[in-house]
């Protein structure tokens, strides 16, 4: 059974006002347990609005959201359960830190779940370890941490709830390349250890290409396509038409194909590109 499923999900901002806007338009998707999904789309394509339906922060104007096969908007109890099953990390999560110490802040979610102190303690330490925060840092005020540490502390706050699906909105924005890599390592590790689904929203193809099993491309509130990376990136030209850039390697391969080289159209990682180029160059390892 899929962990997240939407049926004809539609969300309209400002219904019955002159500012009416359809933010999410008739979206029906399935996300499997343990799956890694990337959601990309241009600014205003409805990706952030869509994910806020997954844990019931927004109520659909039409359609349903099923978590674990249950309609979360059916009653309040289910809604609250859904909040714990689906962990949502907002963009710039470091601005939500509020407790006196990092430890207490990470413990906020598990406490709200009604876990005992021992269980909470275990989860906090586990989450802190996963995101790479030292034990020493746990007793410090979150406002004393560096930017990258704050970001990781905030992510740990959601990870400590051990959701079955972890959703992150632009988790790497504003970080340097090293910081970005670190965040994606955390996401990958969480997925492996908990066998949880992870969903990452981004507008950077490079970030998503490297880790997603499937990519959901949104355009103007609708699903443009929802498929495996090779299939999505083989539609590079269409992607560019809706204002999305494809990874650098894909661009280079597109140019090479135009120049008349017979190369596949679904190259999206440097590793894959390297392998193909080696093959084409006659299997010589030393090029």
């Amino acid at each position: 059974m899929s962990i997240i499923k939407t049926e004809q999900l539609t969300y309209i901002y400002g219904e019955n006002t002159p500012f009416r806007k359809v933010a999410v338009d008739n979206v029906s998707i399935d996300i499997e347990r343990g799956e890694a999904v990337g959601i990309i789309g241009h600014t205003g394509s409805g990706k952030s609005t869509l994910i806020q339906h997954f844990n019931g922060l927004l109520k659909p104007s039409a359609g349903r959201v099923l978590i674990d096969g249950e309609d979360i908007n059916a009653d309040k109890k289910k809604l609250r359960q859904a909040r714990f099953k689906i962990g949502l990390v907002f963009q710039y999560p470091e601005y939500q830190l509020f407790e006196e110490t990092v430890y207490k802040d990470i413990a906020y979610g598990p406490k709200n779940m009604g876990l005992s102190d021992e269980q909470t303690d275990m989860r906090v330490r586990e989450a802190a370890e996963l995101v790479g925060l030292d034990d020493k840092l746990l007793d410090r005020s979150p406002f004393e941490l560096s930017g990258g540490q704050k970001r990781r502390a905030a992510i740990a706050g959601v990870i400590a709830m051990q959701p079955q699906a972890l959703i992150l909105d632009e988790p790497a924005s504003g970080l340097d390349p090293q910081g970005r890599e670190r965040i994606f390592d955390i996401i990958k590790r969480y997925r492996e250890e908990k066998n949880s689904a992870v969903i990452v929203v981004s507008h950077s193809m490079e970030d998503i290409a490297g880790f997603a099993d499937r990519i959901l491309v949104m355009d103007k509130g609708s699903v443009f396509c929802f498929d495996t990376p090779p299939r999505v990136f083989s539609r590079a030209q269409q992607l560019e038409q809706i204002g999305l850039s494809v990874p650098q390697v894909t661009k280079i391969f597109m140019k090479l194909r135009k120049m008349g080289f017979d190369l596949p159209d679904d190259v999206y990682t440097v590793k894959y590109a390297e392998r193909i180029l080696k093959e084409r160059l006659g299997g010589q390892e030393k090029v």
Binding site: R83, L88, F90, Y108
Partner: peptide, 16 residues
């Protein structure tokens, strides 16, 4: 807008 975002974020962490 900021308040709205923070409320959503804390709700996502189960605040009632």
């Amino acid at each position: 807008e900021e308040t709205d975002k923070i409320i959503s974020a804390q709700k996502a962490r189960g605040s009632e």
